[in-house]
Each structure stands twice: as structure tokens, then as C-alpha cells.
């Protein structure tokens, strides 16, 4: 009896989480402009999605920003984490305090504060400002992923490498980096997904004429949703589902994750 109730509960929550997404998927194949009626199966919304310049350029911008911001944030963040690790207590707590600000602060305040800053310094709003903003909110996630790995990494190995004649750079790339790689990687992935999903900060730091998927959806909604948005949602959901499925359950993935977690 208890088992039935808990099964029913799990099922209800899953239904709540997935029913809306399934509806979107169904609508993306619906050959009728009305949302309430099933007009037969069609792929034409997918065709119009592939010909829609706005959607394609938003998709490109989103991926490019996510990739670049995650990459730069990973480099800056890893460097910072190594330095923070070796700092004395006071400067360390000051820097970690500032690091926490963008994670705890409301996105809307982060967004408008950066918008004010860009305008004050006459940096014109566009691709570059979105990129800067995304790097800024991504670095803290990288630092927080790398720091625990650095704490575990053995100090002795690095010194041994130096004693054996490696330059500090060689010692870093050959000894320290492999040690902290799981943290660096999970920081990169976290930053990448944070950037993909961001709407609010992008909304304030983008200029006119450039869109990410999130800001495109937001402006489409005001003008009335085109069915090609449903196709886009379906494609995105499918990609997310497959990527996460592979990274979680592919043979060999468990081991890598175990090291990373």
C-alpha cells in the first residue's frame, strides 16, 4: 500500500514536470495553426524553423557565447583558484566574498548593474557585452568547482616535479592540471549550461538586433508564438536529453563522473 502511494506520487511529479514539454513536442508536429486541435502530422514547422534567420542566428549566438564564455571563465577561474589557494586568510576571504556576489545576488540586479557599467564606459551593447557578462557570472562556478580539487591535490607532487628540474609551467601542465582536471571540466560544463540557460542578464546586456534563444523566445511571446518555436523547443529538448543520457549512462561515463563528483 505504501509502495503504491509513493509510486503514484513519483508518477504525478514526473507527469507535472514532463506533460508541458510533451505538449510542446506534440504541437511541433501539429498541422494546424490552432493549439487546441490536432490537424494531422506535419514536419513543416521544422522546415520553417530551418529557414528562419532569427532562430538560426539566435542559436548560433547562444552556442558561441556559451562556448567562449565557458572557456574564458574556465581559464580565468582556474588561475584565480590556484592563486586563492595560496593566499593568506584575509585577502582570501575578501576575494571569495566578492566571488559569491554574482551567485547570491538577483540576476536582475547583476544585469542592470552591468548594463549601467557598459553604458558609463561607452562600451556599445552587443555580442561583446553579452560575452563579458556571461564570463562574469560564470567565473565563480569555475572557482567553486576547482577549489576542492586543489585542496585534495598533493602539494608534494608539484614540488617533486620542480626538484626534478621541471619549470613551474611544465610542472603545472604535467602534474597539477591532470590532478585537478575533473574539477576544471565540471566547472567548464557548469559554466556552459549556466550561459545557455541565462535570460535575465542577457536581456539587459544585449543591444538591439542581437538575440540568444532565451531573449528570442521572450520577444516572440509578445508578438504571438510561431509554431516553429515549438520545433525549436523539441530540438533543444532532444539534444539536452541525449547529451545528458550519454554523459550519465554511457559505459565509462560513471567512472569519469565518480572522479569528478
Amino acid at each position: 500500500m505504501k509502495k503504491i502511494i509513493s509510486n503514484a506520487y513519483l508518477f504525478t511529479v514526473i507527469l507535472f514536470l514532463y506533460a508541458p514539454i510533451l505538449v510542446l513536442i506534440a504541437l511541433s508536429f501539429n498541422d494546424s495553426k490552432s493549439r487546441a486541435h490536432w490537424g494531422g502530422f506535419t514536419l513543416r514547422w521544422y522546415m520553417s524553423m530551418l529557414q528562419d534567420r532569427d532562430i538560426l542566428s539566435a542559436l548560433r549566438t547562444t552556442l558561441l557565447i556559451a562556448l567562449l564564455s565557458a572557456l574564458l571563465a574556465t581559464i580565468l577561474g582556474t588561475m584565480a583558484a590556484i592563486a586563492i589557494q595560496n593566499m593568506r586568510a584575509f585577502p582570501r576571504s575578501v576575494i571569495l566574498g566578492i566571488t559569491n556576489i554574482p551567485m547570491l545576488n538577483a540576476d536582475i540586479v547583476t544585469g542592470i548593474s552591468m548594463m549601467l557599467c557598459f553604458i558609463a564606459f561607452r562600451i556599445s551593447l552587443g555580442f561583446q557585452t553579452i560575452l563579458i557578462a556571461h564570463i562574469t557570472f560564470n567565473i565563480p562556478y569555475v572557482i567553486l568547482s576547482v577549489m576542492p580539487k586543489l585542496r585534495q591535490a598533493s602539494q608534494v607532487n608539484y614540488e617533486a616535479a620542480l626538484d626534478l628540474g621541471a619549470t613551474p609551467l611544465q610542472a603545472f601542465f604535467k602534474v597539477v592540471l591532470p590532478d585537478i582536471m575533473p574539477g576544471v571540466l565540471s566547472g567548464f560544463l557548469l559554466a556552459f549550461t549556466m550561459s545557455l540557460d541565462d535570460f535575465i542578464v542577457t536581456h539587459f546586456t544585449r543591444g538591439a538586433g542581437i538575440n540568444t534563444i532565451s531573449t528570442l523566445v521572450y520577444s516572440e511571446v509578445r508578438r504571438g508564438i510561431k509554431p516553429s518555436m515549438y520545433s525549436l523547443s523539441t530540438v533543444i529538448f532532444a539534444v539536452v536529453f541525449i547529451v545528458l543520457l550519454i554523459s550519465n549512462f554511457a559505459p565509462g561515463a560513471k567512472k569519469a563522473r565518480g572522479a569528478g563528483a
Binding site: 505538449v23 534563444i213 523566445v217 539536452v240 536529453f241
Partner: peptide, 22 residues
């Protein structure tokens, strides 16, 4: 566990769009 975490990775505006449609 994966099923309950998965929606986190889906673009949140698209998920709100789904409710709007409903």
C-alpha cells in the same frame, strides 16, 4: 533521479512557454 533533474537543463523560458500554451 536523472528524470527529476533533467528539466533543470532545459531552457527555462521554453518551459514557461509550454505553460503559456497550455
Amino acid at each position: 533521479a536523472f528524470l527529476f533533474i533533467l528539466p533543470m537543463w532545459m531552457n527555462s523560458l521554453l518551459r514557461i512557454l509550454a505553460w503559456q500554451t497550455l
